[in-house]
């Protein structure tokens, strides 16, 4: 897996396919939703093949269900491996969650209990998946709306234990940390201070919907100020990390997203010295 600092990227969305090819926007790399391209052909695959000639690609999945107690879906993993061989991504990620139960797919990133049983289960499954795929996987922290009574540790302690026990790397979603901190009443800086930079492969930034009593992780708004502030704080700790903005609904023009991405670049310029950038390149 590449450990290079790729710079600042965006999620690849169908709305922007033609613009990317015709205007070659100032985006350092794109992240694809793996499942959207696990098809035989057609428009998305055609555009991906064109775009990957000009931009590094990272694959991000939503259906591995790494935390499920169901058996691993071998057909899915076979399809994912085939796609990775064709796309040759810089790295591949999915989520620390479960999506399937008894063969039924919730199509949601459901929260795992933070227990030793879950840690052991994840460790075994992550090793198994990495062996099948023939490459290391990166896993993202999810946002959540509930905490289990029988949790044995905080979420950030769970991630730290998983990194130590399993050796896997994380896609740190700063928005998810903020959303969960508001929904569960913890200090997001406690979380960020617990995540060692060497565990982090990539960072996600996104927007959400503030419902007053809680926050819903909708990815349909620009990145809000509190998330930018947390990103800047973690950037000071982490040094240069490949960072991207996720936008899945109310998707604006490519130009607007490039302008928003500039805010992340500006933070990088402020907090990462040339020496640090060189060290991570």
């Amino acid at each position: 897996m590449s450990t290079d600092f790729l710079g600042f990227g965006l999620g690849l969305r169908t709305k922007h396919f033609s613009t990317i090819l015709s205007e070659k926007p100032a985006v350092d790399w794109f992240e694809i939703i793996s499942e959207n391209y696990m098809v035989d052909g057609g428009k998305p695959r055609y555009f991906l093949d064109q775009i990957r000639r000009d931009y590094p690609i990272v694959m991000h999945g939503v259906s591995m269900s790494i935390g499920s107690t169901d058996p691993l879906n071998m057909d899915y993993l076979k399809g994912l491996k085939k796609l990775s061989e064709e796309v040759q991504p810089q790295w591949m990620s999915d989520h620390l969650c479960f999506t399937t139960v008894g063969g039924i797919n919730s199509h949601d990133l459901l929260p795992l209990p933070y227990t030793q049983e879950t840690l052991d289960h994840l460790t075994q499954r992550i090793h198994q998946v990495q062996e099948i795929l023939g490459r290391e996987m990166v896993f993202e922290n999810v946002s959540s709306y509930l905490t289990y009574e029988h949790d044995q540790m905080q979420e950030w302690e769970f991630l730290a234990s998983l990194a130590t026990q399993c050796g896997c790397k994380f896609l740190l979603d700063i928005n998810n940390i903020y959303v969960s901190s508001r929904n569960h009443g913890f200090d997001p800086m406690d979380y960020l201070h617990a995540i060692k930079p060497e565990w982090v492969q990539q960072i996600h930034l996104a927007g959400h919907s503030d419902m007053g009593t809680h926050i819903v992780d909708t990815h349909d708004h620009p990145v809000p100020d509190p998330v930018w502030a947390l990103y800047e704080e973690y950037a000071k700790i982490s040094g240069p990390k490949s960072t991207m903005i996720e936008r899945d609904d109310n998707i604006p023009s490519m130009q607007e997203l490039v302008e928003e991405l500039q805010l992340a670049r500006d933070i990088g310029d402020r907090v990462w010295s040339q020496e640090k950038r060189a060290a991570h390149a």
Partner: peptide, 10 residues
């Protein structure tokens, strides 16, 4: 199974 927290009910 859920901890009671904040303004939201289980």
């Amino acid at each position: 199974r859920i901890i009671k927290q904040g303004e939201l009910t289980n």
